[in-house]
Design a protein around this nucleic acid. Sequence first.
RNA 1: GCCUUUGUAGCUCAAUGGAUAGAGCGCCUGACUUCGGAUCAGUAGGUUGCGGGUUCGACUCCUGCCAAAGGCACCA
Length: 609
Amino acid sequence: MFEIEQKTIEEKIKKFVIRNDIPYIDLKWSTIPFNGEWGISVSFFQIAANEAKLGRNKGIPVSQRAAEISKQVKEYLGSVPSFSHIESVNAYLNLYYSTSDYAARVVNSVFDTGDKFGAGVPKNERVMVEYAQPNTHHSFHIGHARNTLLGESLARIVQFAGFDTIRASYPGDIGLGVITVLWAYNKFYRGKEPEGIHERGQWLANIYTEASRLLEPRDGETPQEKNQRELYDSERREMYRRWDAGDPEVRNLWSMTREWSLEELRDILRILGTKIDVWFFESEVDEPSKAIVDELIARDIATDERKSGGAVIVKIDEKLGLKKEKYRTNVILRSDGTTLYLTKDLALAKEKFEKYHVDRSIYVIDVRQSLHMQQTFAILRLWGFPQADKCYHLAYGYVSLPEGAMSARRGRVVLFKEVYNEAIQRVLKVIVEKNPNMPQDEREGVAQKIGLGALTYSMLSVDNNKDIIFDIDEALNFEGRTGPYIQNAYVRANSILKKYWAENQLSAGKNLPSFEFDYILGNHEIELIEQIARFPGLVQQAAREYRPMIIAAYVYDLANCFHSFYHAVPVLQTDQNSIRNARLNLVAAAKQTIANALALLGITAPEVM
RNA sequence: GCCUUUGUAGCUCAAUGGAUAGAGCGCCUGACUUCGGAUCAGUAGGUUGCGGGUUCGACUCCUGCCAAAGGCACCA
């Protein structure tokens, strides 16, 4: 926010350093870590260390020399516009902002940009974020929820940071798992269809669990049981063969049940606030990927071992000329000529770059698929795919349960929809207790926002590379470092403004008095303003590092500052109008910033709770 | 066997190579007849897995161990 002033001072320091015959190195600025007053800081360790390295320090220890330079620079600078004072502490040079200027600048900047406060300038680069890749014929569990919440938040952050952003979903609508459901449905439940989008989707998932039990070998099974199982398995294989051959009966059954799953998926994405721009389906890249295999064989990148009963493989390390094993060898076409996940990913990459003209492609996929993704990108490089190094796998830790990994096959999953419903029930209970005057018709909507806010925050406040052991009581906690805590800060800010408008018979919205920060600000005000000012920089960092956690941590700090401020600093109760007006505006700026930051996480704050 | 990731307070997690390693939960102690107590203020709690190295400076980078999780060709 003070970039120009910082630049000017940097130039001055540079001039001073060079004039004193000290080799100059670019300065690294940071904010002063002390409370109470804000400003920027720079240290002279690097310059002193560099000087020592060149043997020009006259034997003075680095830290002592750095402190010396810092002191000299302070003397040289004297007083500087926009900064109230400068101090030299050890090797550091601290420049303190002029309080009233800075405060007004920050708050006005929020009002000038509103819900765009914190957004970056357009970067002229198009990024595709691929997430929400559940299989159809299964149900959406909390592992999928982490994936989707993370992908959606990342998309919002990247977009807000200034990149042209495309959201892509890639459901797995074909494969052995899908066929298993078709087989069992056809055999045991033909013609049945439960009422309700979610009930129907979950019912299909139960069929999968049931079918898996029938198809998996068991310890100590009798010969009859074994025969039965093998018969079922051959029926399933036959079903896959018929699907592959385009048998109309199987295809119809497939598209009907597939649609049931997609309907449920679309509704869950709606609940999560996700609007997918581009839908890819595994079934649609199946055929195009076979052409790529042919090309890879023709160019001797892939080895066709089908004549000897094998598959089509790529010896990735060998083709890349690597001595140590890194990507190993992988199959890109089964011996029966059908494609694999990896095969389809090759066609998908091509489609993304060629049809949608993206400059960068981010795959939000569980860490367990890291090797697979690296193999995919390596084969793209071998193929000569021009944007192979523009593909990035955002690996995140997976979600498991206290009793172990989730398994759709064993029916050991926690469904997102069940957690969501439970969240709403719990919030409604709290509302009855804490805000019994809330009108009935408002409660449901508020409960949805708070419940989802709690779940979302619990997922996004841990870094990407951390696994999560899902505990519903932790995920739906409403106190402390949680979504509702932050939403509550927003609500409190709102209630101050509402009261002001009501008392002065003004219409709610932007009716705020003009203001100046021409009094001595207290620590709570200073810290709150400082937090607001940090937001734009953190948006860029989060986008650069693909880490929504940065924003999650930030918005908690901001809310925490606001709660402290709220408790300690009177706003409407202030006697002096000028102070009241300034604080009112600060409250409005904080409210806006909380909303903007929460929006990047996909969390909405209600006006009351 | 090879590869990847992780190891920080009792638990769950933070910390662009930089000033005093911070939060939440839990424990304990307090808070205005006030703008909403889903809150605030405070106490206690640390050899950052262990050993070397690089650096003026290491939780952070390199290296060797130890421990945990995950992955390693016809699943996705």
